[in-house]
Design a protein around this nucleic acid. Structure first.
Lengths: 222, 222
DNA sequence: TAGATTGTTAATCGATTAACAATC
DNA sequence: TAGATTGTTAATCGATTAACAATC
């Protein structure tokens, strides 16, 4: 409901495929390739070549018939398209195992994400350092977010605490939330929320398993 | 390409919405409600009522006009539909922070998932216990998987190691893989793979941010 | 009964795939 | 040149949303 006026109608599936392109392209770049065709990309990623071509067209790239796309240029265009060519600061709430995993992942800076601090309510955790980031008391989040102009909030707290954390983030002027808690979040319209709902993926996996399970087991191995 | 013969055409988006229904329904159950209407569900989850009705119809439930669906029955039907009413054993490879987060999450048993052991190559980790699960050497995975008839493999290793781990899982007869590594996996056709690609979600978030960012910042707060 | 809700068919919307002319 | 590949338009497919009769 109400797509942004600024969004030039990029399909969400297209956006979700972009990182896979980027990964493959970086590999090819490391191998010393200069150019790449949609045909090649499609083969490697087991996708439809036309789909790849349409996806890439959204970045504004222009290719050469019989050659394909310039690799360096394509990578730059995709990174710019996603806004991964400049960093946004982020606060992470919930310094448990999942939070630590995200804090410890070094790949995010290449994805435009710079987690600058973590927050928790646990006095045992507050004051400690996790992968060179300070763990601060949760109640300080709104004030600090506002003062540091932090754009992104990452929620890795238990489901029961998620809405409260989201409220604090919104209060601090954060307007993009990446939510890992299995909970619905109610936020103002202008705040972007993307959910990482593990249970959604698990539902697909479970259902396929329940459907295919018997078939697979009944096939003799030797 | 080649949808399973056994899959009675359930749309993937429908499957992905099921866990959210289940969460809401359990909440209502705890509040003591006996029945629930699609209208109600749609309102709570901010969805279209017709869509909810269609989704629920896949579970085989029948409702009563003016009343809705019996809450207990609906929960049972969804759980059965997803195969969450009986447990599947799973092996987890990669006992880092993310692996630990999954091992420590107690909600999976309610989602049909029983992680019985973890595997790692790090001698420091091997032999230890993580949330009551033994951490075993990775090379033992195939043999153990086969002997224990483990159906599901969870990959939480770095991207560079993911394909090798997938190969070991397939060698052990595992036929459903839940992949958290930012890597493509090549597996035989009959093996189910579902990816938890954080970068895909991040791409959507980043793009929206890049598009809406200026607009949001320019709106005065007071 | 009146009216809220179900179940289902039809219309719309959006994404994928196919077809094909243009080009290097 | 011949032919692989791009760019784009048209056709298909699948999911969402609208419309509406049936029902309790």
């Amino acid at each position: 409901m109400g797509k942004s006026i600024e969004d030039h109608g990029v399909p969400k599936p297209t956006l979700r495929r972009m990182p896979a392109y980027l990964r493959l392209l970086s590999q090819l770049q490391r191998l010393g390739d200069q150019a790449v065709s949609c045909t090649r990309i499609a083969e490697e990623l087991k996708q439809d070549p036309t789909q790849v071509r349409k996806d890439l067209a959204f970045t504004g790239i222009t290719g050469k018939p019989r050659v394909g796309y310039d690799l360096d240029e394509l990578i730059a265009k995709i990174e710019h398209f996603l806004g991964w060519d400049n960093l946004s600061d982020a606060f992470l709430a919930g310094a448990g195992n999942l939070g630590r995993a995200l804090l410890g992942y070094s790949g995010f800076t290449a994805h435009g994400l710079n987690i600058v601090a973590a927050f928790d309510t646990d006095p045992q955790k507050v004051g400690s350092q996790v992968y060179n980031r300070e763990v601060l008391p949760l109640e300080k989040l709104p004030d600090l977010a506002r003062r540091m102009h932090v754009a992104i909030g990452i929620i890795t707290v238990p489901a029961a605490a998620a809405q409260n954390v989201a409220d604090l983030m919104v209060a601090g002027g954060i307007y993009a939330i990446w939510n890992f808690a299995p909970a619905q979040l109610n936020v103002p319209e202008n705040v972007i929320v993307e959910h990482e709902h593990l249970s959604a993926t698990l539902a697909v996996l479970s259902r396929k398993l329940a459907q295919n399970g018997l078939k697979n087991i009944s096939v003799p191995v030797g």
